[in-house]
Design a protein around this nucleic acid. Structure first.
Lengths: 145, 145
DNA sequence: ATTCCTGCAAAAACTTTGCACCATG
DNA sequence: CATGGTGCAAAGTTTTTGCAGGAAT
């Protein structure tokens, strides 16, 4: 499921880019923290444990790159940060939703393909071909009831 | 469907707040621009036509207030701005989704209640009680095909 | 009158950019 | 060894905050 160095090198090569230690480490951190939703600053802190000289600017540049390569997804929880998580790149559709508890703020990951029938309906009703979606459900989780 | 001054005054009064010209005008602009997704700066520019002395800080403060009162919704199109739109406050569930064209950037509003069956399923499957959702579908609109 | 609100400007917070040096292929 | 990448610091953007004067109830 995870991208190894050779695969990553190949993806970069297609765009004329180089594989550096910093890029490898940022991707590693995101892969090792699947399910967490890390900010650039958090990624920076974690990478710095192994690579203390890395700059925050490099983390930002790498994040953009990984997003362009469709290796990571952006998530906005309206807390003033953009958060990132490793994508599920084994399928071409995202069946991946977030349940956000309005009381404790916990974010629960849900794998499901329930959106497909809705997307088909948008095609027939609006002639709009859905290629991706971002869905956040807000509510109260079982622990907060 | 729109909130008149007395209703607005009453909503504010419940929180010990006052109805000011600036608050009335920001709400007016959002009500008159239903379907657009305005940034704080855009709201400021529009309000300034009628009320040239209003400050951007007041617009930001008023937007927060209107959001707390659940009169407006936030929308993040990942373009670096938070955008706002008047809410549909005649029902307690939001049946309101955005179709975002990845080619022309157009945002199409969709009224639908297709999410309800999904939300019921989250209750039975995860014991998570959904109270709201934010859904963005990305794809290609009919004009861009 | 009292309490809240506004405008301005300064600050804060997150992200991007310029540049000299360094690393990769 | 050519090209692209990094780190640092400075700049850029959007949003928030402090404060003195002003408006609403």
């Amino acid at each position: 499921m995870s991208v190894n160095s050779e695969e990553f090198r190949q993806l970069l090569k297609e765009k004329g880019l180089k594989l550096t230690t910093q890029r490898r480490m940022v991707l590693d951190v995101l892969q090792e923290n699947e399910g967490r939703h890390l900010t650039a600053e958090e990624i920076h802190e974690i990478v710095r444990v192994r690579c203390p000289e890395i700059g925050l600017a490099t983390v930002y540049r790498t994040i953009q790159l990984l997003h362009d390569l469709k290796l990571i997804d952006k998530l906005n929880l309206d807390d003033g940060y953009i958060r990132y998580e490793i994508g599920k790149f084994n399928d071409d559709h995202h069946h991946h939703h977030h349940l956000i508890c309005e009381i404790c703020g916990k974010v629960i990951e849900v794998e499901d393909d329930l959106m497909e029938s809705i997307e088909e309906r948008f095609l027939s009703k609006y002639n709009f071909a859905v290629t991706d979606h971002k869905v956040k459900f807000y509510g109260i989780c079982k622990d907060c009831k």
